[in-house]
Nucleic acid binder design. Structure first.
Lengths: 168, 168
DNA sequence: TATTGTTATACTCTATAACTATA
DNA sequence: TATAGTTATAGAGTATAACAATA
């Protein structure tokens, strides 16, 4: 396809042949997405934003965001992990994890313990308070998950988890 | 469930009963995700990151990111839209769209035209150069989409688009 | 030499608030 | 008074680079 042919094609596709602008108000639902409807990434991105907003709202009272929840969950299930191990497992930059842990440590939810085996590294643990708190976070996160289920349907949610199992 | 019971439960679940830290190197693939495996949001987030990275890489030569692509595609299919209309349709903050359009306008891909109907607003159009460029971006984006298909499978990708059709 | 944790910088993105010019 | 576009700020998140302590 030549550049000029591509340009001609593109010019034929729009529904509205506007001059210098819209003469009337255009509602969002009548704006076509064109090629975007065929991109999985677009739908996934919008869905992910919806999910995170619901998660943040559902866990708003305890002030825990998705990344903080994932860090605490992994430390809770694997006590003694180093920062590097947590960062790699969750795909978080180690530099960013430093600040996340600073915040969680200030809130007395997580503690860094100097490792005796390798004095460069810290062994990460939940505090007793952190374990109690995490149990509550998990109950709220399960509530959030029911919102997801209500939004897309029980079977669709399970199918989604199957399809994306390789990305965890 | 009481708080102490929750704490006791949590203490029983970890596979490793570490003291002050790991005595040996722990590989990423043996770190359990615990509750995260049941959260659609976790898998969706990891998948979305993978998709965006592939998109950015595949369109690296033309220096176009997912959000820029979505803005140009919508303007191309609906010439004359106002900034507010584009922002609402794509779920972008209008303040952020200002900078996105500044960048696209500097690159001569998009132009703002003062609307005669409502002099507060701008009618957005692709330049001729922008239409040619968008045709190329769409070909590269289609190539990216084939990477997604190769990653999760043709049928899974289609099922995913069906499940998430409501979020577009 | 290489790795762990840290600090720092820059850029993207989200979320607000306030300002201006119009309506 | 309300809206469209703009400017500004703050916080998350991503991506780097460099450094000290340690391996």
């Amino acid at each position: 396809m030549t550049a000029s042919a591509a340009r001609a094609d593109t010019r034929l596709s729009p529904r509205k042949r506007a001059g210098n602008g819209p003469a009337r108000r255009i509602d969002a639902d009548e704006i076509g997405l064109d090629a975007l409807v065929g991109h999985a990434g677009y739908a996934v991105r919008r869905f992910q934003i919806w999910i995170f907003q619901d998660f943040i709202k559902t866990l708003g009272d305890v002030d825990i965001r998705p990344t903080q929840y994932s860090v605490m969950t992994v430390i809770g299930a694997n006590p003694g992990l180093s920062q590097m191990a947590v960062a790699k497992r969750l795909g978080i930059e180690r530099a960013r994890l430093v600040h996340l842990l600073d915040s969680l440590e200030q809130r007395k939810l997580v503690k860094r313990i100097k490792s005796k085996a390798d004095r460069r590294s810290h062994a990460l643990h939940l505090t007793a308070q952190g374990e109690t708190a995490l149990a509550k976070f998990k109950r709220l996160a399960a509530e959030h998950e029911r919102h997801v289920e209500a939004k897309i349907g029980k079977e669709n949610r399970e199918r989604l988890l199957q399809i994306l199992a390789g990305f965890t």
